[in-house]
């Protein structure tokens, strides 16, 4: 199993700082340089079409837009149940930002079919760096 070839950003946050931290990191790592204001708008638009809850208390908001510079997986860990993007009790969000499907992304999605991945993300004894390593090394931590 390998889901490398993608950029990963992993961070934890509380409800009030979630969106601020997200846009700050997206800008800092040049995932999006222009139209950053459209990110949240597009993500919310997608959520309105149907739930992206992919595991109990884990959502996967995603956009496929030309203004995304590089395909990036952003894992937001909330530590406890909190409201986010219209959901009331969410523990983590796996945000997928891409400008087009690629093999690495398909591999990554395939890996998410295994519930162990979510257990790893939700387990707070694993640091953010551990989680990032877990994905880079392909679940071999």
């Amino acid at each position: 199993m390998h889901y490398t070839g993608l950029n990963y950003i992993v961070f934890d946050c509380n409800q009030s700082e979630a969106l601020g931290k997200l846009t700050e990191l997206v800008r800092q790592y040049h995932v999006i340089d222009e139209h950053i204001n459209r990110l949240l708008e597009d993500v919310k638009k997608r959520e309105k079409l149907g739930s992206t809850e992919i595991y109990p208390k884990v959502i996967m908001p995603h956009i496929n837009e030309a203004y995304v510079n590089q395909t990036t997986i952003i894992i937001m860990r909330f530590g406890k149940d909190m409201g986010f993007l219209g959901y009331s009790t969410i523990r983590a969000a796996v945000l997928v930002l891409t400008n087009g499907a690629n093999d690495a992304l398909a591999e990554f999605m395939h890996a998410l079919a295994d519930p162990q991945v979510f257990e790893y993300i939700l387990d707070l004894s694993h640091s953010n760096d551990d989680v990032k390593d877990y994905f880079i090394k392909g679940g071999e931590n």
């Binding site: 149907g50 992206t52 499907a101």
Partner: peptide, 15 residues
Amino acid sequence: MCASGVGTSKLLYAK
């Protein structure tokens, strides 16, 4: 199928 063709549809494919 999903809205973007790269998100939940890919995950659904595997499942």
